[in-house]
Amino acid sequence: KVTYHVPNEEFARKLYKKAVDANLNVEIRVENGQFIIHIE
């Protein structure tokens, strides 16, 4: 399980798409202006 803290929405979207394309379980949320992405 990996967690990324991404300040940039564009990068967060790319990361999310890559994980989904790889059939990984992804959860994304915004906290204090940062995008928190959990990948399992």
Rank of each mutant, 00 (worst) to 15 (best):
K1R: 11
V26P: 03
T3W: 10
F11P: 03
G33S: 03
K14S: 07
E9Q: 04
K18H: 10
Y16G: 01
I28Y: 04
K18Y: 13
T3Q: 06
T3M: 06
E27P: 00
Y4E: 02
F35W: 15
A19Y: 13
E31T: 05
I37E: 00
K18P: 02
N32D: 09
N8R: 02
E31K: 05
E27W: 13
I37W: 01
I37D: 00
K1A: 12
A19S: 04
A22F: 09
V26K: 00
L15T: 02
P7E: 14
E10P: 02
N25Q: 12
E40S: 14
R13H: 10
N8Q: 04
P7W: 15
I28W: 05
L24F: 08
I39M: 04
N25V: 12
V20I: 12
N23D: 05
E27T: 14
V30P: 01
N32T: 04
L15W: 06
V2W: 14
V30W: 13
H5K: 13
Y4P: 02
E40W: 15
I39L: 04
V30T: 05
K14W: 15
I37F: 02
N25S: 11
F35G: 00
G33Y: 05
K14F: 11
E9Y: 11
V2G: 06
K17S: 06
F35R: 00
H5E: 06
V6N: 03
E40D: 11
H38L: 14
I28M: 12
K14V: 10
L15Q: 02
V26S: 01
F35N: 00
K17L: 09
V2C: 15
I28L: 11
F35S: 01
K18D: 11
D21L: 12
R29M: 09
H38G: 02
H38K: 09
A12C: 13
I28N: 00
E9D: 04
E27N: 07
E9V: 08
V26F: 04
E10I: 06
E9G: 06
I37H: 00
T3A: 04
I39V: 08
E9C: 14
H38Y: 12
F11A: 15
P7H: 14
E31S: 07
Y4A: 03
Y16A: 06
K17Y: 07
V2K: 10
G33L: 03
F11Q: 14
E27H: 10
V20W: 05
L15S: 01
H5V: 14
E10T: 05
I28D: 00
V30C: 09
I36P: 00
A12G: 02
V6W: 07
E27A: 07
G33F: 05
V2F: 12
R13M: 14
H5A: 10
E10C: 15
Y16P: 01
V26N: 00
G33E: 03
P7N: 14
G33H: 03
Y16N: 01
H38F: 11
R13S: 05
V2P: 05
N32H: 09
E31D: 06
I36N: 01
V30R: 07
L15K: 03
F11S: 13
P7S: 15
N8G: 04
H38D: 11
F35P: 01
K1Q: 09
T3I: 12
P7F: 15
N8W: 13
L15Y: 03
Q34N: 10
G33N: 05
V26Q: 00
D21P: 02
V2N: 06
V30K: 08
L24E: 01
K18T: 08
E10V: 05
V26R: 00
L24P: 00
I37P: 00
T3E: 07
I28E: 00
K1E: 07
V2L: 10
T3D: 06
K1F: 12
R13K: 13
K18R: 08
P7T: 15
R13E: 09
A22E: 06
F35K: 00
E27D: 07
A22T: 02
N23W: 15
E10K: 06
D21C: 13
H5D: 03
L24R: 03
K18C: 15
K18N: 09
R29A: 05
F11T: 14
P7Y: 15
I36S: 04
Y16Q: 03
I37N: 00
T3R: 05
N25T: 11
V26T: 01
L15F: 07
N23A: 06
Y16V: 08
E40Y: 15
E10G: 05
Y4I: 14
I36G: 01
I37T: 01
R29P: 00
D21M: 11
F11Y: 12
E40L: 13
K17F: 08
N25D: 07
L24Y: 07
L24I: 04
H5M: 12
V6G: 12
F35Y: 12
N32P: 02
E31Q: 07
N8H: 05
D21E: 13
V2I: 12
I36T: 08
V26W: 03
E27R: 06
V20T: 09
K18L: 14
K17R: 08
E40V: 12
G33I: 05
P7V: 15
V2Q: 08
K14M: 12
N23V: 08
V6F: 13
R13V: 08
E40K: 11
K14L: 12
V30I: 11
N32E: 06
V30E: 11
Y16I: 10
V20Y: 07
H38P: 00
R13Q: 11
T3Y: 08
E40H: 13
I36R: 02
L15V: 08
N23L: 10
V6A: 11
R29G: 03
Y4K: 01
F11R: 06
H38S: 14
V2Y: 12
E9N: 02
P7M: 15
Y16R: 02
L15G: 02
L15M: 07
E10S: 07
A19E: 02
R29K: 10
E27S: 14
K1W: 15
K17C: 14
H5W: 14
E10A: 08
A22Y: 09
K17Q: 13
H38R: 10
V30Q: 10
L24W: 08
A19W: 12
N23G: 15
R29T: 10
K14Y: 14
I37M: 03
Y4W: 09
D21W: 11
R13T: 07
I28Q: 01
Q34A: 10
H5F: 14
V2E: 05
V30Y: 14
F11K: 06
K18Q: 13
V20L: 14
E10D: 10
H38C: 11
I36M: 05
I39G: 01
E10N: 04
A12I: 09
L24Q: 03
V6D: 04
F35C: 01
T3G: 04
Q34S: 10
G33C: 07
E9K: 06
K14N: 08
E40A: 10
D21K: 10
H38E: 15
H5R: 13
K1S: 12
E31Y: 06
F35M: 03
R13W: 15
Y4M: 09
H38M: 14
V20A: 06
F35L: 06
E27I: 11
A22G: 06
I28K: 00
A19Q: 03
V26M: 02
Y16H: 05
I28R: 00
P7L: 15
E9M: 08
H38V: 15
N25G: 04
Q34I: 15
D21F: 08
K1H: 11
E27G: 04
V26C: 04
E31M: 07
Q34Y: 14
F35Q: 01
F11G: 06
E9W: 13
V20Q: 12
T3N: 05
P7D: 15
V2S: 06
I39P: 00
E40M: 14
V20G: 02
A19D: 01
G33W: 13
H5L: 13
Y4F: 11
V26G: 01
Q34C: 14
H5N: 07
F35D: 00
K18F: 13
V26E: 00
E40R: 11
G33A: 03
A22W: 11
V6T: 15
Y16S: 01
T3H: 07
A19N: 02
E27L: 09
E10F: 06
H38N: 09
A22K: 08
A19R: 02
I37A: 01
K1L: 09
A22H: 08
N23F: 13
I39T: 01
A12W: 11
V20E: 05
E27K: 08
N23I: 12
L24H: 02
A19T: 03
Q34G: 07
I37C: 04
E27C: 08
I39N: 00
P7G: 13
E31A: 07
K1N: 11
V30D: 02
A12K: 04
